[in-house]
Design a protein around this nucleic acid. Structure first.
Lengths: 249, 249
DNA sequence: CGCAAGATTGACATAGGTCAACGTGTGTGG
DNA sequence: CCACACACGTTGACCTATGTCAATCTTGCG
């Protein structure tokens, strides 16, 4: 497991932090921020590296500053299921728990803003704003997990793929908004295997369904990872969800 | 939707409440309890009735006092997936959200301890103990949801059934502890259809797998709903989980 | 250039879904 | 007190979506 302290990142002041308004610390006042500023330290992890293994002692919690990481569980015989996708501003670790419950793996290069667990927990007791925000974030994650349960339990392979693509777009849309009428496009941040682990499929099925969607014109591929959606409504029909879904509204 | 105020239940003082030490209010001090006592009202729902429909305006939150309820999501074409099982002390509703996100259905007769949402939210702002406990409970639910994602995405039908039985036993064990060496037994609180909705299977598959487990002596049936486990380790082997699993330890 | 790592595709196997018939048991009304 | 209806459960025959195994293609990189 390789990591290093990011010399450059270490100098970021919380006030300038890119995830300032979305992370656990988003509700903190100036003086609370100052305290966090003193506690925090940055850590960077290269793409492909595992950040923590399930069962490891975990003496820190963190906010994901940049990059993408996955939470996954693996059975003894190797079957694995992704149980969460961590994006910038998401929280890693659980206050009040000593051991990691899941494997956390960096999908791209990742920067974490870490806090040693004990001081963080102490701060949390003194600072209701942090607990409040963490509750809100946890409730959102619970909703996402439950939406995923519907996908895993009841959707077909094709619906699963379409849903994943739609979710990635929805997320992307909230950042670099694109022309409404025009074609949407984005880079898949996941390998076929990672997609399979997320969707409860095999990579072969993922590959076949992507090919099928391409053949039928629902999506276009530019290279293996870059996807173009000529007609978003068409894609959304394929997800099996209620037609609206609140995308881009 | 039929419900009524439980005249008898209405007189329960928080101090005597059966879920006093596990629910959202578990950390509250005497004076905080007094305040809750003033806010709360009881509501009972008969087995089979739906408590709220997904999308409904929801102007209350509640603790489940007795009985069992389910959270589920249904797709337009009728496919449904249970996304949570609510047991006594579990919390219903989400502070800060106006509409219910899931159908909540009473599986058995159910008693709720309700709070109108606005006053409860206000109380939560003033009383960190409630938010803290709710965070803890939400984190536990998130873990449970993620464990269920592994089951839905990667387990075989047989493993799914065995896991469900093991979970019910684990829960039961924490109440009426039974002789360690002796056979464990319990009543299934769910129909085959509800089990299927929980496990992402059809009821036929559930029925077949239960028959198979019976045929092979992993379980015994007394009537349709009462289950006897002659050898717990044997059942746990069938779940596909790590051998220990922390059951009864 | 030539190999890995990722991705695609094909042939085939199978777990679980679907449709349909048949049990079982319990509460209700004649 | 019977019977019969209805909800729940079981079982069978068959089908299909997805998994498995294996060969081949593509592409970026040392």
């Amino acid at each position: 497991m390789s990591f290093q302290t990011a010399a450059a990142a270490a100098s970021i002041k919380c006030g300038d932090c890119p995830i300032r308004h979305r992370a656990v610390c988003s509700r903190c006042e100036t003086d609370e921020l100052r305290e966090l500023d003193g506690l925090k330290y940055y850590r960077t992890i290269e793409a492909g590296q595992t950040i923590v293994w399930s069962g490891d002692e975990m003496d820190f919690v963190a906010s994901l500053v940049s990059g993408i990481a996955t939470l996954s569980q693996t059975m003894e015989d190797g079957r694995t299921q992704m149980v969460g996708l961590l994006l910038p501003s998401d929280f890693v670790g659980r206050p009040g728990r000593a051991e990691a419950a899941y494997d956390v793996t960096a999908t791209t290069d990742v920067t974490l803003c870490c806090f040693r667990k004990k001081p963080f927990e102490a701060l949390m007791m003194r600072t209701p704003h942090i607990g409040q925000r963490l509750l809100e974030m946890t409730l959102d994650e619970l909703d996402a997990a439950r939406e995923w349960m519907l996908l895993l339990g009841r959707k077909t392979a094709r619906e699963k793929i379409a849903t994943l693509l739609a979710i990635i777009i929805r997320r992307d849309a909230s950042l670099h908004l694109q022309a409404d009428g025009g074609a949407l496009e984005f880079d898949l941040p996941l390998t076929r295997e990672a997609m399979a682990d997320y969707l409860g499929l095999t990579l072969e099925t993922v590959s076949r369904q992507i090919s099928a969607l391409k053949r039928e014109g629902v999506i276009e591929l530019r290279g293996k990872r870059h996807i173009v959606i000529p007609d978003l409504d068409r894609l959304i029909e394929e997800t099996g969800d209620d037609s609206d879904g609140g995308v881009l509204t």
